[in-house]
């Protein structure tokens, strides 16, 4: 069958499991610089399904698209190590403070600029927001159908793609014409590990901004090996209205942020000693909590 152009939307996210005090800025937005950054887990599931599709349809190409600060180029390198063909880092100060609507607008405009595409994959949601909104919103802006919560590619042919999707209370197998956007659920297979050869090939891949800090020796190599160049796009590379970007283009505003304060209860401290547990169970039975 005809080769496919596949795009994977991936996000570098702060590891919300390890949040320190400096995590929030005064305006209520996230201070990403203060946190460890990781490849959003469900985007890795999305990458795996995309790689499987690429394996199935010979000659297909896979591009990773990520929006974020300069260091988000790391997400693209991780994709290259696993089998992606190339990547685009979309980065600009004007994107700062984007909510899901402004983010999906910027991503959709970038995809339009990339012209031909057949299947766009994205993780169902990112762990820093858990909104699951960007995927469907990009699909809307591209005016293409969406299949959410995919866990398996059942089949693909020139006419359609068939996907098994995970619902709250069951599974569904659906077919769609292409182009289509597919969001991927964590129940999809884990992403394959880095490939040693690809790691060697791409470990020195860099964006133009990253290259600026490099030695002349590196630049010589960079010039002769075009695959080392990671595309870096700014608002100037896509057609966008500035007022639809960033904080200004975001209809949702953070009115208030409250740190979580516990209303501490007077709790009874117990040990696992027989006497304590015996007393506890007696008490719970007597006050009809159990039994």
């Amino acid at each position: 069958m005809k080769a496919l152009k596949i795009i994977v939307l991936a996000k570098q996210v702060p590891d919300t499991r390890n949040v320190g005090k400096d995590a929030m800025k005064a305006d209520g937005t996230v201070n990403r610089a203060a946190l460890a950054a990781i490849f959003n887990p469900e985007d890795l599931n999305a990458l795996e399904l995309a790689l499987q599709l690429k394996d199935k349809v010979k000659g297909s190409t896979l591009t990773i698209l990520t929006m974020g600060p300069g260091r988000a180029a790391e997400v693209i390198r991780e994709g290259l190590y696993r089998g992606a063909d190339n990547g685009i880092l979309l980065t600009d100060r004007k994107f700062a403070g984007s909510d899901t609507l402004a983010t999906s607008y910027a991503l959709a405009q970038t995809i339009k600029k990339m012209k031909d595409f057949d299947v766009v994959f994205a993780g169902r949601q990112a762990i820093d927001g858990d909104t699951a909104q960007v995927g469907p919103q990009v699909a809307d802006k591209l005016n293409i159908p969406q299949i959410t919560y995919a866990e398996e590619i059942v089949d693909v042919n020139d006419k359609e793609i068939i996907i098994k999707r995970r619902l709250d209370r069951g599974v569904e197998v659906v077919s769609s014409s292409k182009p289509v956007l597919i969001t991927v659920h964590s129940s999809a297979p884990d992403c394959r590990p880095r490939n040693a050869k690809l790691l060697m090939k791409y470990k020195h891949s860099k964006t133009v901004t990253e290259v600026q800090d490099m030695s002349e020796d590196y630049l010589d190599i960079y010039q002769t090996r075009p695959y080392l160049k990671i595309e870096e796009w700014s608002v100037n590379d896509i057609e966008v209205e500035d007022r639809a970007l960033g904080l200004g283009g975001s209809p949702t505003k953070v009115k208030k942020i409250e740190n979580v304060v516990f209303k501490a209860k007077e709790s009874k401290k117990l040990t696992p000693l027989d006497e304590d547990i015996d007393d506890l169970m007696k008490e719970l039975i007597e006050n009809h909590t159990i039994g």
């Binding site: 995590a23 209809p251 949702t252 505003k253 009115k255 942020i257 979580v260």
Partner: peptide
């Protein structure tokens, strides 16, 4: 929001 470390009030 944000890993549960804060509670946010969002408005449109």
């Amino acid at each position: 929001a944000f890993g549960g470390n804060i509670v946010a009030t969002i408005i449109n």
